[in-house]
């Protein structure tokens, strides 16, 4: 046994800190929360407001553009039809909105962060352990304080999703840039390319397949957080799953579960497709 006399618990100070934060600075977080909420509600308003066939058409167009295969395009159409037939269209759109918001913020944070990590050893040494913490810390540990600060519902869910889903994007952006052939960069430098030109004209385009793989992982991880997010009141497919399993209504849980899987498959194939053709272009060109 570790001697009790050496115990140093951080429980009480952390609890007091959170309580003081909520009591005194609650309004600051409420304001931030309000902004994020507006953005999600806007995305949700668009997705839920559009007629279903238009959403399916948009997804088909994306699938066609990304894969250039008719089979996938038709499969996407059939899968989304299934969602509608199962009667979970509206919930799926709510989940999609939540996930899109989390993904957009993840990209805004993740890609620049990944570039910084690739370029600077110091940033890299600081960031990587932080990413480890983000990926391993059980999400409930930060969900509950986030909930007290940002209010119940979508906003803490999005924040938790970002914390969990952004690390792969940062890691893979970093990897992608560092994997760019040093000779290619050297050649670009020899032709007088400025660091900015090299980054945007050489490194990022060559790293795109890896970055897209990172984005793909981010989306998948965001989807896997959907059920956890519902535990703090985010509505959508996750809530339906939670409700289904908690009331022993297995059928209801499975229906919503299928919805999540379909969303995952569709988004996975589309983002994977966007990664691939560029590789070929890059090789050919």
């Amino acid at each position: 046994m570790f001697p009790d006399s050496l115990n140093l618990s951080i429980r009480a100070p952390v609890n007091d800190f959170i309580q003081a934060l909520v009591t005194n600075y609650g309004w600051v977080f409420k304001a931030i929360s309000g902004v994020i909420l507006k953005a999600v509600l806007f995305i949700e308003w668009i997705l839920r407001g559009l007629p279903w066939w238009l959403v399916i058409l948009a997804f088909m167009a994306l699938a066609c553009r990304s894969s250039r295969r008719w089979s996938l395009t038709l499969a996407v159409c059939a899968l989304l039809e299934t969602v509608g037939v199962l009667g979970i269209w509206d919930l799926t759109m709510q989940t999609l909105a939540l996930m899109l918001m989390a993904t957009i913020v993840s990209v805004v944070i993740g890609v620049p962060m990944g570039i910084l990590v690739a370029k600077s050893r110091v940033v890299r040494n600081i960031t990587l352990p932080v990413l480890d913490v983000m990926q391993t810390m059980p999400s409930f540990v930060y969900l509950i304080p986030a909930l007290m600060l940002f209010g119940l519902g979508k906003v803490p869910a999005i924040l938790a999703t970002i914390i969990y889903a952004v690390p792969p994007l940062i890691r893979l952006t970093d990897l992608g840039i560092r994997q760019v052939d040093a000779e290619v960069v050297e050649a670009a430098t020899a032709f007088g390319g400025s660091p900015g030109q090299i980054l945007f004209g050489v490194e990022l385009p060559l790293a795109t397949p890896t970055i897209m793989a990172g984005l793909n992982q981010t989306i998948m991880m965001a989807l896997s957080m959907v059920v956890v997010a519902s535990m703090i009141g985010a509505r959508g497919l996750g809530e339906q799953v939670l409700n289904g399993i908690q009331t022993l209504d297995v059928g209801k849980g499975l229906e919503a579960g299928i919805g999540i899987v379909i969303l995952a498959v569709v988004l996975d194939r589309i983002t994977q497709g966007f990664g691939k053709p560029r590789t070929e272009d890059a090789r050919n060109g």
Partner: peptide
């Protein structure tokens, strides 16, 4: 009809609102 998902979430929401 807002269902908080877990008992902890319900308690946290009430506590947070009350403190503020």
């Amino acid at each position: 009809n807002f269902r908080p998902g877990t008992g902890t979430a319900l308690d946290a929401a009430i506590t947070s609102a009350y403190l503020q």
